[in-house]
Design a protein around this nucleic acid. Structure first.
Lengths: 337, 337
DNA sequence: TTGAAAGCGCTAACAC
DNA sequence: GTGTTAGCGCTTTCAA
């Protein structure tokens, strides 16, 4: 194995000079730097990660805790993870993958052993058991999602309340007067993930402001539940012409169910969803949607963490504004009869 | 920060005794061990990962390289990753996540800096550019998928050839005489991923053995392509009664397309797929399928790596036998007329 | 602009 | 069964 002393000898300088040439933490004359770089290339030198971590108390590794259970949309998690890894690499960091099920002990372990310098935690609950630990840890962290009491924490997420509002506003602008939100399964509300309630709140508030009739229904993510929900909505609210769906796997089944029940989308019923753009674009009929910006959130989360690691101040809350793209499932309400 | 000398002092022993108590690499008297464990608990000691890696030349971290691009089914990758992390933890290892796009340089980096002890590489191509590097690396690796020349490498995957054969055999047993395989998009065949060809080969060979008429069609993963494919199959092979699909996102669209064209599944057309069990179970009509055992592959890949790290011999090739589960999309051929 | 040298915290000979 | 001690390869004062 080639080490820093080998490079130093080869370049005719001291080890510390090589180190400084590598880190840029003190000025090196052009000529010396050239010689060092040449030696590094020639010898194929790679600094030992462990030695570096030990001497500098920086591992240059971030922990990413991903959720894995019912109700979480897998492609979103995946896209998020890839974005975190890619952005971390741009900042010369690597990413250690942890699963939710490792729990608080897992967080404590990677932090206390100095395996990682900082942590990104996905799928944060309103009253997440990990919050006290994250506050107490000597390493910075960024949470994806907002707990009930975000004090002392750095959080980032899509502005779900604004997203709900944007959907209601969109339907209102198209002339719809009676709208419904079909949301996440009941367990997601019970689990108090926060974003489900926020969407409902934003949707309801925006609808009321504009004088619309609105209602909210949680719904299981199965075709059968979609069918039952469609039937129920038609029965209880025959005047319904605008629908918002916040439940990724349910969007298409719900549209299918309405179609089977004789409603045309968008002519009889306008549908707008919160879902990844990819899903909205690839649907049989492209769906008007507010994007779930996984990649942006991932990149921004890493950016926040880097600033914290550099001792720079960061905002406690970062809310990404919703981006609604009109596609083929919403249209102006036609007043019949 | 609490260090090993603190623990040693607190327990009244030497640092090496603490180290050995932790690693179990030499016998410690029960009484001493108790005292040490108590001290560790009391002081909240956690060994520094970097110091450990430096002194022992073992980081206890595995690299996992995941693919991210068209034609790869995201849930499969995700499930695989979770299984690797979970299994690695059972062996006291962590997992560093790398994306395919980091390429050979990424592999070399994490290996040469001793950031990781070993590597798992997903989505290996028939003539993968990374193969020479993986052979030359001083760290063990396990490949998911089989290259054209697996000599000197450790590979594991579902036995896709047997899977293709199992599907043909299943259809034959149900009395079908004319069967087709709708496969991955052409680019997957062009990319020479290997498994696409293997499925086709196994399917064709098993069909021929049993005297069936069979054909193979690559197909894009879009609804439009599914529809066109269904029409074409009906037109060119009106006697077709058995279909195998090896293209996850296409399974349901294809079934839908046939249904729209007036064929009932399974009464007029039996359909068997290679796809994750989860997808097969959750379909509107549960799909008879050969499972893609991501979790088993992930767990076994880690197991192989652990044995290699321990200097134990491992098989060069591990092929997981296909597991076909009969569900609601295949049935006995009814000879009409 | 550069060098010398003292650690960083742990492991694993080696010695008893 | 346990202790002593010399590194592991790097960073970073301190000194020039």
């Amino acid at each position: 194995m080639v080490k820093i002393t080998d490079v130093a000898q080869h370049a005719g300088v001291s080890p510390s000079t090589v180190s400084y040439a590598l880190s840029g933490k003190r000025p090196i004359s052009d000529e010396t730097r050239q010689r060092i770089e040449a030696s590094i290339r020639e010898l194929g030198y790679r600094p030992h990660a462990g030695a570096r971590a030990l001497a500098s108390s920086r591992s240059n590794v971030l922990a990413l805790v991903i959720p894995f259970r019912a109700g979480i949309h897998v492609p979103v998690v995946m896209q998020f993870a890839v974005s975190v890894v890619t952005t971390a690499r741009q900042h010369d960091h690597d990413v250690l993958l942890l699963t939710q099920e490792e729990g608080e002990e897992g967080l404590r372990r990677v932090a206390d052993t100095a395996l990682v310098d900082a942590l990104i935690v996905m799928d944060v609950q309103l009253h997440d058991a990990r919050l006290p630990l994250l506050r107490a840890l000597d390493r910075p962290s960024v949470l994806i999602g907002f707990p009930a009491e975000p004090e002392g924490l750095t959080c980032i997420d899509l502005d779900f309340e604004a997203a709900g509002g944007a959907c209601a506003a969109h339907l209102a602008e198209l002339g719809h007067r009676c709208v419904a939100l079909v949301g996440s399964p009941p367990e997601v509300y019970l689990r108090e993930t926060g974003f489900a309630q926020r969407v409902a709140h934003g949707f309801t508030a925006a609808a009321r402001e504009r004088g619309l009739t609105s209602m909210v229904y949680p719904c299981e993510s199965t075709r059968a539940a979609a069918r039952a929900m469609a039937e129920r909505l038609l029965r209880e609210h025959p005047e319904l012409t605008g629908l918002m769906v916040h439940n990724e796997p349910l969007v298409q089944p719900l549209i299918d169910a309405f179609r089977e029940l004789g409603l045309r989308v968008p002519d009889d019923l306008s549908v707008v969803a919160i879902c990844p753009d990819e899903q909205a674009e690839q649907a049989p009929v492209p769906i008007t949607s507010v994007a779930i910006p996984s990649a942006e959130i991932g990149a921004e989360a890493v950016g926040l963490l880097m600033r914290k690691l550099d001792g720079l101040p960061v905002p406690g809350a970062t809310l990404l504004p919703p981006r609604l793209t009109r596609r083929a499932t919403t249209t102006r309400r036609t007043v019949s009869g």
